[in-house]
Amino acid sequence: MSLVALVLGVALAAGAVLLVALPFLREPEVADDRLDAPTAAEEERLGLIEERDRALGALKELEFDHRAGKITDDDYRRDIGPLRRAAAGALRRLDDTPDLHPQPVTETNRGETMSEIQPVPEPTPPPDEGTLPIPDPVTEPYPPPDEADLPTIPQE
């Protein structure tokens, strides 16, 4: 092995060791060395959020499919009630979980730790699950649901 290669190889190894050891060099002593994993309550809440998003997404899809003529008015009337009840249920269960509400994150507050994010109120009230809606005649087939947007509650 040439001397240059030896020196470069040793330097490479030393640099790698330094970087690998960096977390311990930065924080030699820590009070809490546990991984920042969600607690059981947070896991449950994550599940509820997924359930909510899914229910609201299903509502939006139903609206869109109805507008696009992919389902009949009868099918729409049959399906909208259970879906709204499911969405309302998911929202209520989420609402019943205190101090763990969804929090908006912007470009500025997206950081290494999410604990600094400020809570915000629920975006919209849940729908009235007691009143089954009768869909208005819709002439406009589009726009399709924007899956990238946050789901919204259908307005009564």
């Binding site: 994550l46 969804p102 908006p104 994150v105 912007t106 604990s115 947007d149 946050l150």
Partner: peptide
């Protein structure tokens, strides 16, 4: 890349990381 989708992911995960 869709910035809105990223925001949605961050928002969804926020309670689990708080």
């Amino acid at each position: 890349p869709d910035a809105r989708e990223q925001r949605r992911l961050v928002t969804r995960l926020a309670p689990a990381r708080a």
